[in-house]
Each structure stands twice: as structure tokens, then as C-alpha cells.
Write a protein that binds this DNA or RNA. Structure first.
Lengths: 157, 157
DNA sequence: CTAAACTCGGATACTTATTATCTTAGTTCT
DNA sequence: AGAACTAAGATAATAAGTATCCGAGTTTAG
């Protein structure tokens, strides 16, 4: 089980956007984080498609959070980039083999699938409780005011 | 993010082993679940390497749980087959770029990585609370006694 | 009003991990 | 002692993730 690397980049980008003044182009975000510009663009497009960020085209364009950072959870970002389908997908192997259950006997979810689904709900719940604003506030707390201002200026350029 | 299909098979196999009388060969387990025998063998080998099941070679060989089913959690099986490394791996991109943090400033874990780690701990905790015996007991509850006996006889052959 | 420069968006190669298979080595019963 | 059955490791095919390029649209400046 491995989470796509683009997820990590997307979360960091959202935090940066929450602390920026205006739109920030994808290329600027890539340079800021020292990652591949073209691949980061792919993740940002996923955020745009999910409606988490707004993409402004044109010469002074870039990405902006489409909602207040406090209303964007980490889970929202993860689902937008990594996809909404759960990590565990029951293949209903209980219906296979010489003692396979008949479809009409499978009204209830497979017991194994239920355990895995509960765990995944716990995972999602933990991510849903943290917002981009929470992370941004923490970062702001450990960043000197002078550097924070320098970053904002560099992003606006 | 996708969990390996072999994980689902391994959990089902452990449940079957907890309800069997003697050793069950990999080929029999594959036929019972209607899955690829050779690939299932790979997952069973992982369980054997982790010490969750004991492999008996020879003509009447097969796999047996090496511990009582109540002492084997679903998490044990998942980690054995899928590997122990977490789904989210922090690449420390906060150290990159023009405003990258110096290594000596990174004593504490990255705030993003901490959020993801907390979520993953919640996921693991949910899986650790359920044992193979728990699932076995549920399956026993919804299976007619006659069929349960037939299954045990078929597994022993 | 025209044109140039800069932006995002989708479609296209490459790399890595997962899935599936085969062959080899070891153990037990006849 | 031999034969048959078992698991274990090493080896190909497939799918997902990673990285990249080129085209469509918009805004600003002349």
C-alpha cells in the first residue's frame, strides 16, 4: 500500500496558498517546493477539478483556494488527488469455490470487508478533523515574521 | 492508494485455517477461494516468514496457524503481506526550494507528515482491535452447522 | 484594436510496483 | 530406497504511478 507522492505535494501547496495574498502559478509553487513542475501541475489540476482551488488563466493567473482554508480538510485534498475509491476493495471471494455463498445470501457486507472499511473510516475521520488552516497556523507559529513576509513577497513577485 | 489483493486472500485464508482441524495445503486453500494458486502461495509465504503460520512440508503438509486465532490480529496479517512501511512517506520537501528549512531546524516531524501519521495510526489501531478469532466467530454464527462440518471434512480430505 | 506573453488543461512516453507463473529444493509415506 | 507430495525462491507479464511535452485560452501592453 503506497500513497501517491503527489498527495504530499498537494497538501503543502494548499498550505502555501492559504498563506499567500494573490494567485500563485503552478511553476512558482513547483520552484518553491523543489519538485517537478510538470508533474505537480497534474496534482493541481486534480484539485481544480475537485473544486478545492480556482485556476485563473492569463498573464497574472495562478491558483487560489476557492474556499476559506478552515473549510478545506486534509481529507478533501487526499481524496481529490488520490481518488475517492477505498484502498481495500472486496472481490467477494466468499462467492467462489465449492462452498461459495449464493448472491442472495450476501445481503450483508463480507465480514472481512467490514473490518477493513471500519479501519478506513477511522483513517478518513482523522484526516477530516484537520483543516488546511490548522496546518497553516502551526507553520505560522514556528516561522519568524520576517521570513513569512519574505515568502509572501516572493510568491507575489 | 491501493491495498494489494493478496491481503484480502490472506485474511480469508487465516479465518479458514482457524476453523480447520489439521494442516491445509496452499493448493486446497486456493481452490476453496477460487483464486490463483501460485499467487496465493506468495502471500502464504509472507505469512510464514512473519511467523503467523507454520508451514509443514511433506506429503501430509500444509499451513497451520502458529498461534491461537485470538492472538492474531488483522493488522498482523496486513503488515505481514503488505509490508510494514507506512503508506505516506514524507520526502522532506520543506527542506527544498529557496526558503527550504535547514536540517538542524527539522528536529520536529513535518506538520503534514504528523497529520498523516496520526491518521495511519488510527487505521492500524482499528485493525489491531479485531482478531482472526473474532471474524471466525462471526462466520461460524451465520453458517449452518451441517455446512461447517462439510467444509472441515473437505479441507481435511 | 492588435499582438505578444503568460497561464492552465489534456494527451503522450517512461519508470516502478503489483500480479501471475514457472522451476527448484526439501520432507514424508509406501 | 524410491516415489509423490509439499513449500520456497527466482523469473516473466501486467497495471499503476511518475514525468514530460504540446495545445487552448486569457490578460496585459503597445
Amino acid at each position: 500500500m503506497k500513497l501517491a507522492a503527489g498527495v504530499e505535494w498537494a497538501i503543502h501547496c494548499c498550505v502555501v496558498l492559504s498563506r499567500a495574498d494573490g494567485p500563485v502559478p503552478a511553476q512558482r509553487l513547483a520552484e518553491f517546493h523543489g519538485v517537478s513542475p510538470t508533474y505537480l501541475a497534474k496534482s493541481l489540476q486534480a484539485l481544480s477539478r475537485a473544486g478545492l482551488v480556482a485556476a485563473l488563466e492569463g498573464r497574472v493567473g495562478g491558483y487560489v483556494l476557492s474556499r476559506p482554508a478552515a473549510e478545506i480538510s486534509v481529507l478533501d485534498v487526499v481524496l481529490a488527488v488520490d481518488g475517492p475509491e477505498p484502498a481495500f476493495r472486496c472481490t467477494e471471494i466468499r462467492q467462489n469455490g465449492p462452498f461459495g455463498a449464493k448472491p442472495e445470501e450476501c445481503q450483508e457486507m463480507c465480514s472481512v470487508a467490514r473490518v477493513m472499511a471500519n479501519a478506513e473510516n477511522a483513517w478518513r475521520g482523522a484526516l477530516a478533523e484537520v483543516s488546511i488552516a490548522d496546518i497553516g497556523a502551526y507553520v505560522a507559529g514556528i516561522t519568524p515574521a520576517a521570513q513569512a513576509e519574505a515568502v509572501r513577497a516572493w510568491l507575489a513577485n
